[in-house]
């Protein structure tokens, strides 16, 4: 399962210009699968950063506009998009000039493989 998902992510990594890293982690920020190019901000995939999403997403769901689906954070030079697949988090790290719409479209293609991962750990 892990190798299969890694192959799928690797295939998608080069589909969008400027996409540097695709990562799947758990809600605490611990890496499960990750593919990346040679140059990307390595600090982003540390648990201290990745773990922020789960709490922020839960809080954002209390804003009165429904459940939080994703959070985009823009930095000078990079954009980080984190998708809510709790207990998993799908993260894209891309150049700030990358097309955010294309990255969202890429996420739609990855729904099935991440969904299978969710199903594998869900308690009946």
């Amino acid at each position: 399962m892990d190798e299969g998902l890694q192959a799928v992510l690797k295939k998608h990594l080069h589909l969008v210009d400027g996409l540097r890293c695709i990562s799947v982690s758990d809600r605490d920020g611990v890496q499960i699968v990750e593919v990346h190019t040679d140059h990307f901000p390595t600090g982003v995939i540390k648990p201290i950063f990745m773990g922020t999403f789960a709490i922020a997403s839960e809080q954002a769901s209390k804003l009165g506009v429904g459940k939080n689906t994703s959070i985009i954070s823009y930095y000078s030079g990079y954009q980080v998009i984190q998708f809510n697949y709790l207990p998993f988090v799908l993260t894209f790290i891309a150049d700030s000039k990358s097309n955010t719409g294309m990255l969202y479209s890429l996420e739609e293609d990855l729904r099935d493989p991440i969904g299978h991962l969710q199903a594998a750990v869900s308690v009946p």
């Binding site: 950063f49 769901s61 506009v65 985009i72 930095y75």
Partner: peptide, 26 residues
């Protein structure tokens, strides 16, 4: 939360903007 954690992990890349996408708005 994001600003504090990005200071620790993104080095000289300050946080510029956050967009929270939810089911019925953003």
């Amino acid at each position: 939360s994001y600003d504090k954690n990005s200071n620790a992990t993104m080095e000289d890349k300050p946080l510029e903007l956050i967009v929270l996408q939810c089911e019925d708005g953003c």
